[in-house]
Design a protein around this nucleic acid. Sequence first.
DNA 1: GATATGAGCGAGAGCGCTCTCTTAGCCAGC
DNA 2: GCTGGCTAAGAGAGCGCTCTCGCTCATATC
Lengths: 349, 349
Amino acid sequence: MTLVVDDDCEPDMSYRKPTIEDVAREAGVSRATASRAMNNMPGASGLTRARVAEVAATLGYRPNQAARALASGRRMVVDLVVVNYDPDLSWIGSHPYFSRVIAGMMSALDGSTVHLQIHVGLMAGAAELIDTVARQATVGAVLVNVPPDLAIRFQRRCPRVVSLNTPASSVPIVESENTAGAYTAVGHLHQIGCRRIAAIHGPSINACASSRRAGHLGLIGDAGVPDIAAGGGFLREGGYRAAAQLLAQHPEVDGLFVSSDLMAAGAVHAITATGRRIPDDIAVVGFDDSIAAVCANPPLSTMRLPVEEMAAAATKALLDGDLPSSWQKTFPVQLITRQSTDPTAAAYT
Amino acid sequence: MTLVVDDDCEPDMSYRKPTIEDVAREAGVSRATASRAMNNMPGASGLTRARVAEVAATLGYRPNQAARALASGRRMVVDLVVVNYDPDLSWIGSHPYFSRVIAGMMSALDGSTVHLQIHVGLMAGAAELIDTVARQATVGAVLVNVPPDLAIRFQRRCPRVVSLNTPASSVPIVESENTAGAYTAVGHLHQIGCRRIAAIHGPSINACASSRRAGHLGLIGDAGVPDIAAGGGFLREGGYRAAAQLLAQHPEVDGLFVSSDLMAAGAVHAITATGRRIPDDIAVVGFDDSIAAVCANPPLSTMRLPVEEMAAAATKALLDGDLPSSWQKTFPVQLITRQSTDPTAAAYT
DNA sequence: GATATGAGCGAGAGCGCTCTCTTAGCCAGC
DNA sequence: GCTGGCTAAGAGAGCGCTCTCGCTCATATC
């Protein structure tokens, strides 16, 4: 294990990053008190706390995470907890949503010394996973696809937690306007002339899936078109099967709203397998604007979800600390029009 | 490829993770000597080195990265250097290759306290980026899409470097059998009856692209079929344009080998836009087995590249240290048959 | 044989922080 | 006033490692 670095470099020898010692001296207190003040530990007066905070700010003090980890025996990590059905890491490469989450978290962690640690658990052993991660959490955790009861369980053990798109009472959350987005998506189909609009929803236990379902129901109610729907599992296979079944039972369908691009890619396979053309016979709108949307043939109109920004916001909130349980942030989603609803769309958007 | 971490933190309080002190005592040497021995620093005899290594192994010693970072003043990070045209981090979510690289590196880093740090640079400022990263490198760097001269430049400044799929004399490398893979892919087209096989190659400066080109040329030479080829940029747009041009100039083409799935997805768009059917009129084989292959319509036959495993191997080599410049590891690629060459293929593979 | 050389190794001083132990200071209660 | 209790704050001992310095001893040089 080689690790020595030739110590060329460091042209500016006069500059030294401020340490807690510097802060303490400047504030006229001891190291211990400065540490207590900055870490919100009991044993420091409000006055001292304020003075230390001020000095730390003017000095631009940033605690050395290595020293902190060594002294406390705890590493500084942000945990990403994903409850999933596939314990294999290779989903990162094949599941466009998670890779975007990771990208966003990494960009938020950029420049800090905080780690990103990923935990994937099967739904079956999820409670245990939650307990383990919550117990050893340091900076905090971002929860993806974790059911509300487990999110609350996590929060009881460790309050530094943000849920991504899965609401659970009292758990801080970053969410996207799924309902409004689905309403817009289905509205788009209606606007281009579809009157027999079918939908393929995600698993109903999934919060995004039910919000999108609500948006869909909202629009078909307002527009007065029938509710034709099937469920998939947010994966390609599910989209394929649901679309095949839908087309068999409702051959008159002229528009299809699919709750995720990955499912939509599968649905496209099923649709073209029946000889129908997209968008001439059936227009299709997906959701997410993941790579699946642009690789599908034809490219899919979809609702763009700012996943990277959302994950980065969740991570930053954790990093900043002081996260009231009412904390939340909502991101808009945006319609992207491609050839699956608009034959005149440019080949590449 | 497992994901979950949790190797620290056993509830057994009597158990203490072995420290360098334990190793030193057991080996009958001082801490300093143990450190020297394990870090390949000069000043320890071969005998001592071996003894320390053995004790460390039997004790299951794992250095505490926090302590190491604190003592040495360096953080332990593995750098991923990507030279690209898009400085925006969001490519991670949309470029299937890089997300798989990251997945693989993360799995190798799993359980250690080593960071993954990503550097993306434009080709224009690449030399500067290389210098910066090499100077502050700790564990080492994995280079993706870094031209040979820059890889060598990096190595001169920091020998702890592995190139992914881009050979540069004397730089350790992890590569895949691109040439053999392309040969197999084109052979597959030939075997199913294609005789007018066109190819869309990646940018010739890219090593993977030229290896795959060599494999393509090899097979068409052996099979005695004409060389019909165009170039794309490894991106969807390039694949689209190249395919459109190819079909216009060579309408007789009945098979298409595309050097990346992303380009192939674009090519599929161009092919179906002309009214041709896949695979009946033209069979298509891609390369990579990325998500683009399965989202394309029809799903693409392709050569599976074990990107995650390759990236993990590169990272592990860095972590283990002691990387002779002749170090290299080669991974095979495997033909995956889907509907773009075989109409009888199952809808999902 | 005396001296220089250098390789192998140990002692020990930190790295920047956390956390326990201890002390100083203050007020309530008898 | 004295004791007890309680809070604010300081002193100091590490956390596990790296790295400099200096010592020892074998080998090379004159």
